[in-house]
Design a protein around this nucleic acid. Structure first.
Lengths: 210, 210
DNA sequence: ATGTGATAGTGCTATAATTAACATATCTAT
DNA sequence: ATAGATATGTTAATTATAGCACTATCACAT
């Protein structure tokens, strides 16, 4: 790959741009400028152009960007040109919410298997997917060639589950448990920490006053 | 406050440190070094010390940090020395998951009111809280002196809800909707974008191969 | 054709954040 | 007491990120 290193912040913004463009495209708008994108998503125009520049030239000077084109390019860059098979582990509150989260399907993330340790949940249907026991995780995930695992189990079980996912050859893991996890370096891992988000807020609220 | 500007990344890490210390404290460990904290949460020891240095001197040279002490300090810094009243708006999948999320209560975030537009949900109980119609939002949130609002409604309604929350004098808003929201500058706003997290993963997975 | 306005692309500058290195302080053992 | 080991706090250096200003290019009107 020619792009030596792209900041993660850029990737996050590209994702936001692409979703914004989906919205703009739906309105039938053909062309858009970096300034308009910037306005729409709350960043600076220079930032938009800089982010895009990591990956090539997508616009025409004096004009702007073709909405459909740029959107397609961004989706391609983000690896969203085809669907992804996702395995969801843990059907507690968070897991259940994620299982029916529209935002995933819209972007091509298809939950193809769901696992839970609780025998009373095993066998029930969530959408079109039957909940399976965690013992079957490695087998099923391998069989489906699932590349992404979502971990939404209690902290105490998280590492165990992650090890299983790695054994099942997933490439990436999204972790909702409040646990620091160890994975081989070639596996992509991201942690989503809901409480931390609130705590950044409380810190800032306090900082304003103090 | 003497600390001119603290990076947000530092705040996030402080939050992680503090939770790790809670865990360590539970094991009865009295003293801990920056290296051990670093090891435990996956950052560098220098980073830990630098982060703490923004707020003062909490350790003793040659020894390390007192676990209980440091934990208390961090909680204080993060504004968690007392509970926060939180209003949850939107009781869809995400809202429901958040309503029973243990991670919030553990850190002192108490959901004191829940609102939804769906009449069939209004009046039902979620834990000890009765779901109320959004029309009552401003009144109830004001009355409770609630300072934090969590928005988990569809994108189309998000701005409307945020405006209501602002009118009800909340200080901070955590937004789960996929919408760019406008708030007055004095209101703290954070967006949690679940799909983006997956997309950072897919980008990285693709980047490895390409 | 040609000039004018608009906007993408890009190199440079400034700012921020992380890493590394070092000096300082504490405890322990002799 | 004092030396040595250890780990903090802090300063310096490196790296990364964002912002700005300039240049090149295109479309359109004259």
């Amino acid at each position: 790959m020619k792009t030596l290193k792209v900041p993660e912040a850029t990737i996050i913004r590209l994702s936001v741009y692409s979703r914004y463009l989906t919205e703009v495209d739906r309105k039938g708008i053909i062309t858009i400028s970096s300034g308009e994108i910037a306005e729409g998503v709350g960043v600076s125009p220079a930032q938009v152009r800089k982010d895009l520049a990591y990956f090539g030239e997508f616009g025409t000077r004096g004009v702007g960007y073709n909405v459909k084109d740029l959107r397609q390019h961004l989706l391609k860059i983000l690896g969203l040109s085809s669907d992804w098979s996702v395995a969801l582990v843990g059907l507690g509150n968070i897991g259940l919410a994620l299982s029916s989260f529209k935002g995933f399907v819209e972007r091509g993330f298809i939950i193809t298997s769901i696992f839970d340790a609780d025998p009373s949940k095993v066998g029930t249907m969530v959408g079109h997917v039957e909940v399976m026991p965690v013992e079957k995780l490695v087998e099923v995930v391998k069989q489906n060639c699932t590349q992404i695992g979502i971990v939404a189990v209690p902290a105490s079980e998280a590492q165990e589950i992650v090890d299983q996912l790695v054994k099942a050859n997933v490439k990436a893991i999204l972790n909702f448990s409040l646990m620091v996890l160890n994975v081989p370096p070639e596996i992509e891992l991201r942690n989503v920490d809901l409480a931390v988000n609130l705590e950044v807020l409380t810190f800032n609220v306090c900082a304003q006053r103090c």
